[in-house]
Nucleic acid binder design. Sequence first.
DNA 1: CAGCTTCCATACGGCAGAGTATGGGGTTAC
DNA 2: GTAACCCCATACTCTGCCGTATGGAAGCTG
Lengths: 197, 197
Amino acid sequence: MAKSSTDNSGGGEKASLTPADWEQEALALIAEKGIAALRVEPLARRLGITKGSFYWHFPGRDELLSKALARWEQQDRQHLRLSLSAGSAPAERLADFVWRTSRQTLTHRIYVALCASPDHPCIGPVLRRVTERRIKYLAAALEELGLPTTEARHRANLMYSSYVGYLQLQAQGLVPDKDEPDFDAYVQHVIETLIEI
Amino acid sequence: MAKSSTDNSGGGEKASLTPADWEQEALALIAEKGIAALRVEPLARRLGITKGSFYWHFPGRDELLSKALARWEQQDRQHLRLSLSAGSAPAERLADFVWRTSRQTLTHRIYVALCASPDHPCIGPVLRRVTERRIKYLAAALEELGLPTTEARHRANLMYSSYVGYLQLQAQGLVPDKDEPDFDAYVQHVIETLIEI
DNA sequence: CAGCTTCCATACGGCAGAGTATGGGGTTAC
DNA sequence: GTAACCCCATACTCTGCCGTATGGAAGCTG
């Protein structure tokens, strides 16, 4: 596992592909075309290489998927950690959290892609962990904001549901994207309706 | 196209499969395993028959998918029509609508499956039409309830997003199903938060 | 009964992707 | 320099599906 050979700290061309390269490109492919599109040969072509390389680094397709998802989950945990340490007052922190997460893109697309296959043995557990973490964070913040426990849980589910659903509608192109002018007004409406009680 | 031969009005065994049978079974398969699982040979096996039959009734896989989706869209329009003619006061009608749609199952699963492939040329248009119809209905009801136009549109998007998102979380098993006790309390919370203003 | 249509079974060719086997060029170690 | 190792290319088999071609059994029709 020692990082090998000519460490090309200079140019743009990598002499040799690491497992991390494969995983990153796998995530990009998932974000673009979904998990079904994550196939070994096309991915290799995309990297300008043949699958002979792939099967040297990974035992098979499932292992690549698992590793890539683990990497994605790790990134998501860091995002949450950042949001946790952000604001001070819970109301501001929540609003800030909504605004912050409304501006990600790659993570969103991957999340949507994963939602499409919640029963896949490699995907289900990761997806559940990530979702549960996020909802738990929301529920805690809402409780801190004064809501009783059950109501906080319900509200957290509602908030998170509306988030996931909005991602779906965005994929259908039926709802403004984060660049269009209506978007900010909508987010503001959501905050007023769901947070400022 | 004449419905043929021995019209078995009696038993349970069909002598001959109609296109409608194929379309119905296709929808069932989509609801269970997604659009990617809609393949000709497995579907034929499921019906206890070979694909020789299929290619007599349909030119190909895409035509089956289109016809099946058209059938589904038709059913969905009828559901909406029923909800429209239901209650009288807009608030009750909305609440009733939420309760009613929260109890469907097959339609939901199909909708989720379709959401997973919004870019597919056969699926995208149907999906957009259905979604837009539903949201328009919500927005109209909300406006009738007293909200100004823009706010009604935002609120309709929010309501519908929360609906779609809840379907996703249900698929992950992270949120109570319509049989479990918590479900009714959650729906009540949603109604109070999003409708009773 | 012969003939036609309807619906389905079987067999075939083609394609795409999963893994496997094997070899070879380049680098590193001794 | 040569032996070993890392990384990748090539060629192969195997599987699952699409779509087609063709034949055959059952039913109506005359």
